[in-house]
Write a protein that binds this DNA or RNA. Sequence first.
DNA 1: GACGGATTAGGACGTATGTCCTAAAGAGTG
DNA 2: CACTCTTTAGGACATACGTCCTAATCCGTC
Lengths: 192, 192
Amino acid sequence: MSDGKTFEQIVASADDLFYRQGFENTSFADIAAEVGISRGNFYYHFKSKDEILNAVIEARLADTRAMIAAWEAETEDPEGRICCYIRILLDHQSEIMAHGCPVGTLTSELAKLNHQAQGAANGIFTLFRDWLRLQFERLGCGAESDRNAMRVLAWSQGVATLANAYRDEDFVRREVEEITGWLRARVRDCAA
Amino acid sequence: MSDGKTFEQIVASADDLFYRQGFENTSFADIAAEVGISRGNFYYHFKSKDEILNAVIEARLADTRAMIAAWEAETEDPEGRICCYIRILLDHQSEIMAHGCPVGTLTSELAKLNHQAQGAANGIFTLFRDWLRLQFERLGCGAESDRNAMRVLAWSQGVATLANAYRDEDFVRREVEEITGWLRARVRDCAA
DNA sequence: GACGGATTAGGACGTATGTCCTAAAGAGTG
DNA sequence: CACTCTTTAGGACATACGTCCTAATCCGTC
């Protein structure tokens, strides 16, 4: 019933379209066209559009966990790991300039729709937040760790929003350097 | 034809609803219900929904200009003026936690819709950006002025996005203090 | 009070959408 | 080949939406 090839394709296309066009603005016809199936076929795999959204959020949660796992495999150094997160802004620069941050724009849209999946979408933020907090704790930031994690999240969200508005590559590059510099200083302070 | 009482009410209600529910997700029926007029009456004042959006953006531009003028009347001190901008986060805290930043969420939505009014909506950002840059220039930040202005914009945008996601009052308050502290340090650096 | 332009109400129209239903096609098993 | 369960196609259905049209109402002026 679930977890077939078509199921995965629907989720993948919906994921992409929700990111590029927004959830509300993406129709079944859009997804069907991209997957190459008929419109009526959705209801064999999903009971409603909201259920597709839930599956997309699940997929994003899984992707995020995998991404974090890859960063953990990349380096043991907490500061280096935090830099991995910051580097998303560069690695996905063109997509971010075109469509913003996938997490931030989705949570914003769901907040306006008063959608039930809001909490689930926030879970993606929380995945990053908790992991970043852990890295700051390992750096000795103690009680400040969560605040630092939130600062990194907020900073990157702001950069994504303005990058999307102005499509300015240099701005993104400069801010990434600035965040990295702030991080270095913060690590020094915490270690002291 | 234009600029009547009904016209103003439509723009005011649309402005409010676009903020709370999003542009795409707000229908003529919604606006009509809030203003108390019939649905078909819109087309006497506006040729299309996009024209309402344009009027809303015009109104927001005017409001922003008025807000900036009020700040300029409030104090001559550039640092104090920048603090006025930062203080929006506190003055409109509950709305921001409920619906995000009106500017950031609108530009994000229009970007996803590939809407023609995207540029006009960015103009609101630019109003703040140019004015903030001017204040930094007067503080002696020189070539760094625009970067500092963008940083203040980005920071506040990020705080708004996360405030909307987590609805955490303390987080907003802490970040405002942090930005203010950063500003003080930056002013010191520039003056030196 | 009568006229005329400004404004409004109400509904028609075509389209798009989410949802649902049913018949057909596909795939695997005996 | 026959049977069954899974999967798909295609369209029906009600609803909501943006747009447009027309008749009615308001209101200031003569």
